[in-house]
Write a protein that binds this DNA or RNA. Structure first.
Lengths: 356, 356
DNA sequence: CGTTGCATTTCCAACGTTGTAAGGGACTAT
DNA sequence: ATAGTCCCTTACAACGTTGGAAATGCAACG
């Protein structure tokens, strides 16, 4: 049977409350007493019962992370970053998968699925701008991702316009002038916000370089899955539109596009340079390796966890919702003519990263 | 403030214990009473406080899953499967990353990191056969993976010999006769068990087909990372050994090998057919898509969760440890001359799967 | 009509922790 | 010596739930 606070108190010759005071770093404990308690704790290998603490304090020290599916690379990496960030703050993470369904996402917001958590990090994939009202929930919630904006909760997201502009600028810097994009939204689809912002970044970069905007180069693809990237690229090639660079709105689209280019015998980057957005690990391992904009996922995870913990501990009237934009940077690889110093190495971002 | 059992009891006009009895599906509650309690619960949107329940019952309804890193595709898919399996049993999953370090894995076993859990699913990457003694822990533990065998706990794992044999047989069936393998272990390395078993499966298949074993075709690669697969393939090509098929001991090695083959201008599958093992999602998206043996990951997750829950609820003397081997099957794709009916589609295993 | 037996419900205590308020001891100032 | 003060420590209750035992109600029986 595991030791309890009472056991520790008995061994140390103090009351349980004094043990509690030592554990919680309360002031007003004599150093000698503190030491005695410490050694009793060590001797008994005592660890606080978190259920009891949770019951008494109303906090469990666990946060929920709701994502569509772990097997989607992007979300695995997000979960990885969140778990690391939470660990540093001594918080555990319960992962819940919504299955990328609307019902799943709504279920998560009902709070019926993730019990035992103090708050929720939520990265929706189906809910959109029209569902903002659903975010009004009776527990601390921090929103992630680019599907809903200006909601009632804190929101941490990448810089859509900036990173899209950076991607386009990167292609311009290596001399490309006919730059296609893949991932625009079909009219009135509710991916709107994010896709529109990226189109805006693209156009800003073009404008700054004095290049005219050509609608023929802007391709619809939704959702942003590999097969749609491949299909959009097939269309682009079939239409005979001339282009020497492609910016896909995420890496998954980009990998699909790369595959089509490879099958079609188009050389990358000689004939067409390709850059994605997300900087998922997989981008480093495609043939050729794919350049991408790193949207600052680690920073997003850190900040999101911090905000959530802040909200959990918030007393009194809640502060107004905050929106945080992460820093981004270009990771240049073979698909835009750069060489990976250490191709296939599994850790750290490539040193050929261009700081923003 | 959230409703408690007392609130429900008051509304329903019964005692708290009766509410508890309804919630826990105890017999001996009159249907009328049960109904009254049910509607009170609905009316108040009551949900049990899991901290209190955990305190009282000693169970939290949460299990831990310790894996090296979520960003490794294989483990993301494993975590996905485990979370789904656990959800069906109304159990939540706390994911802990060991960081693929020996210290991290030992720390997990100390139980100091994952508190608030009833038991642990542990998939080691660093610990090996010599560390078996560390698995003797004071909480329910189910071991996953192929690094440690015959330990003191339940163990769920793929069928190493069988799946390796199946991979080799698949290459034989499409007419290959000079079949190389990548992923053997350097002598005395502690990957031994798994790599050896796969070599055995390979040799069994060769023997059954009446083909002589040629040591020159057996290549060392450790750990099983992409870069080592690429390097082993470079060596194989550089050595001038003749071969028309390659079986890599996991998919990551295979993707690395595919990359090298592509760069070297060797045609897949015309010149060399390639098959991996693990059937990670990524295998469907490489160019060409890569055949693989599906080691039954979903089944492994299901069984592992079941065993763990059984152990958690076990009373009295523990039953002897059990070892479960999962069913495997070949997923045939372009790299062995098969066509994906739906290339790039993100769900379900390809219908070209050959059942085992 | 009292008794028995069973189904149903209630009462009480306990799980391990922490907040509150009060207690005890040592020191200082008078 | 005495009161006042400051530190440090303690006692007690409470968080919301469930196990066990006790109590109640009801029907059938003699």
């Amino acid at each position: 049977m595991a030791a309890t606070m009472h056991d520790v108190a008995r061994v140390a010759g103090v009351s349980v409350k004094t043990v509690s005071n030592v554990i919680n770093d309360f002031p007003h404990v004599r150093p000698a007493t503190r030491e005695r308690v410490r050694s009793a704790i060590a001797q008994l290998d005592y660890r606080p019962n978190l259920s009891a603490r949770g019951l008494r304090s109303g906090k469990t020290g666990v946060i929920g992370l709701a994502i569509p599916e772990l097997r989607q690379n992007y979300f695995a990496e997000l979960a990885d970053a969140v778990i690391r960030a939470a660990e540093r703050r001594d918080v555990a993470v319960l992962v819940d998968q919504t299955g990328a369904t609307r019902e799943g996402e709504i279920a998560v917001l009902s709070g019926h699925r993730l019990r035992l958590t103090d708050g929720l990090l939520f990265s929706p994939e189906q809910l959109g701008q029209d569902d903002i009202a659903l975010l009004q929930v009776p527990f601390p919630l921090v929103l992630l991702g680019e599907r809903m904006f200006d909601g009632p909760t804190d929101h941490v997201t990448m810089h859509n316009v900036g990173s899209a502009r950076a991607a386009t600028e990167h292609l311009l810097e290596i001399g490309r002038r006919r730059i296609a994009v893949i991932g625009a939204h079909p009219t009135h689809q509710d991916d709107i916000r994010s896709a529109n912002l990226r189109v805006r970044g693209y156009r800003e970069a073009l404008a700054a370089a004095g290049i005219a905007y050509d609608p023929a180069l802007v391709r619809v693809a939704a959702p942003w899955h590999r097969e749609n990237g491949a299909a959009a690229m097939r269309d682009l090639l079939a239409d005979g539109v001339e282009f020497d660079g492609v910016f896909t709105f995420n890496d998954t689209l980009g990998l699909g596009a790369l595959r089509t280019l490879g099958q079609a015998g188009v050389r990358v980057p000689e004939d067409v340079a390709v850059i994605g957005l997300d900087n998922i690990d997989e981008a480093r391992f495609s043939v050729p390796s794919m350049s991408s904009v790193d949207p600052g996922r680690d920073q997003i995870a850190e900040v999101a966890v911090d905000l959530l913990i802040e909200r959990i501990n918030e007393k009194g009237d809640p502060a107004p919702p905050r929106q945080i934009l992460a820093d981004y940077r270009v990771a240049a690889r073979e698909s835009t003519g750069f060489v990976d110093p250490e191709p296939g190495l599994a850790s750290a971002v490539s040193p050929s990263v261009l700081e923003h």
